[in-house]
Nucleic acid binder design. Structure first.
Lengths: 140, 140
DNA sequence: TTTTTTATGTAATAATATAACATACAATAT
DNA sequence: ATATTGTATGTTATATTATTACATAAAAAA
């Protein structure tokens, strides 16, 4: 959703330090068609930074996750750029079992339902992650 | 949800082979208060089986997952016994960030919402996993 | 300019999971 | 009963994913 310039601006506005490894990791994730794994990020990072080690990739991933520009797809151990603005408490992903494409989808009703259903059980929901497997229109 | 005898019966009915490692792994997962990790299962399994190796645990876990008696909590890399009968295409988990307890919850509305929202986008949902983090009533 | 905080570099290792192949066992067919 | 076939296990090795720990560097604040 965000272009690089926008992200740079947002970082400046919030005084988040936009270092080289962070910027390069964001670019790698953003330019990846499908969710990308940490060690594949690391491999690509080696084209930009001399002999990067796992913590370099993981730290940058965490930074972007924290600010909601990158999501982790739990069932894939992989990371994808956020496509719905950078602030939300929960996300929904449609994962194509065939081509591996992941569509981030905002089901706006979910939060209401969560509240209704979980507060009845006196559970206080703070964030959620919904991963839906199936077939995308290209593959079905 | 199921007691051991019921599960034994169901296995016999379906001609699923209920071997020792499978039974012991099921017991370990069932008796665990919170979701349990594969290598913790393996450690406990060592009390029952001589020097078990990772594949022994993982194979048994997979067997029970396949038949929906055990779920994997993706965000925890951990496994928990199913509490809602052994046949459903999707599951919802309320994960307490404080005590680690995980409540399996059937939000019956979810499937309808999924269908509405995903078929609009011509994505065919087959199964889903919803993990909701928050605070349980004990901890909030 | 000094101090403090935050980020990175690097080596080591922890935690999670699977591949490959030999052996054993159970179910089925003969 | 026995041979055949398919399924499960035992075992070694290794792949994959992620973190700890500590030294150094850079930026921000005092």
């Amino acid at each position: 959703m965000f272009k690089e310039e926008q992200i740079i601006k947002i970082c400046k506005q919030n005084k988040w330090r936009l270092t080289e490894p962070r910027l390069e990791v964001l670019r790698i994730i953003s330019h990846s068609k499908n969710p990308i794994k940490a060690y594949d990020i690391l491999k690509k990072l080696a084209n930009k930074i001399k002999n990067p080690k796992p913590p370099t990739a993981y730290r940058a991933i965490q930074f972007w996750q924290k600010h909601n520009f990158v999501h982790r797809i739990e069932s894939l151990n992989a990371y994808q750029a956020c496509s719905h603005g950078h602030s939300h408490a929960g996300a929904q992903f449609l994962i194509c079992d065939d081509c591996g494409k992941v569509i981030e989808s905002n089901l706006h009703e979910i939060p209401e339902i969560l509240k209704k259903n979980t507060e009845n059980k006196t559970f206080k929901p703070l964030r959620w992650n919904l991963e839906i497997n199936g077939l995308c229109n290209q593959c079905s």
